[in-house]
Design a protein around this nucleic acid. Sequence first.
DNA 1: TGTCAATGATTGATATATCAATTATTATAT
DNA 2: ATATAATAATTGATATATCAATCATTGACA
Lengths: 143, 143
Amino acid sequence: MDKLENNVLYILDKAFRSYHQYASNQLKKHGFSITVDQWLVLKTALENPELSQKQLSDVLYKDNASITRIIQHLEKSEYLTTSQHPSDRRRTILKITDLGKKITSDVHKIALKNREIALTDISTHDINTLNSILQKIINNTKP
Amino acid sequence: MDKLENNVLYILDKAFRSYHQYASNQLKKHGFSITVDQWLVLKTALENPELSQKQLSDVLYKDNASITRIIQHLEKSEYLTTSQHPSDRRRTILKITDLGKKITSDVHKIALKNREIALTDISTHDINTLNSILQKIINNTKP
DNA sequence: TGTCAATGATTGATATATCAATTATTATAT
DNA sequence: ATATAATAATTGATATATCAATCATTGACA
């Protein structure tokens, strides 16, 4: 029976966990009280102000319920405010506060450094290859 | 400010989530009541019977606390039994039951199919490349 | 040999993931 | 115009992730 360690998807699992743990530790080490996932949602909402929570969950491959709770945390931390969509009252409009914009930008600097560390000794060509292979895996497995 | 979607580590995050969700759905669709993470721990323990829970957490990039609770679930499901290590009573010895071996093997068949789907249209050469790049990321970010 | 540090495992608190069920609202079809 | 279906978001239950604190045991060493 195939060993686990020969399965590239198991290596993908470990690479994700290793990077995620590293990024999380760096945030803590620099004194930020926001999680990696909260930051991802915040930054995505900032870059795409028109997205509904449902659409956020789709692009981030997160559950609706997770998005709801992450947004509740972000609101409690005063990184965003929520209001009702004028033409579709089922939807929520997210407005990132100045504080939210500031932490998004501050954390972005850490994220850049994290990426640099994580990609040490990996060529631009290999990064492009990695990118396109990962994209294929996403397409092959998405609902 | 760099867009998120241009960051390969964000693509890695999404690829992991997409595959994990796919694998999880396949397990459920086939009627298994074990989670992907429980199966990973069970299979790793079966392939490496000498590992302590601490070592399991290291090789799987999981938290000690997560391993403890996953093992509690596996024991409750009667997929393994625990006993004290004879020469170091701090350690726990995990013994996979016949039922545990059976489900490990049964789920392995699904895992093979999942891998085939996930890696559709990705060449062996690219898989090797992916493997070595991911390994570099792991080495670059591990504690 | 007795003290103290290091290690393996567990537990509590909080955040996230997943699924199912629910609520509120909007869209569709006669 | 009304009944029904579809959609956006929330909530509850359970599993996992993370950190800190704790307990029991072993190791190191003066």
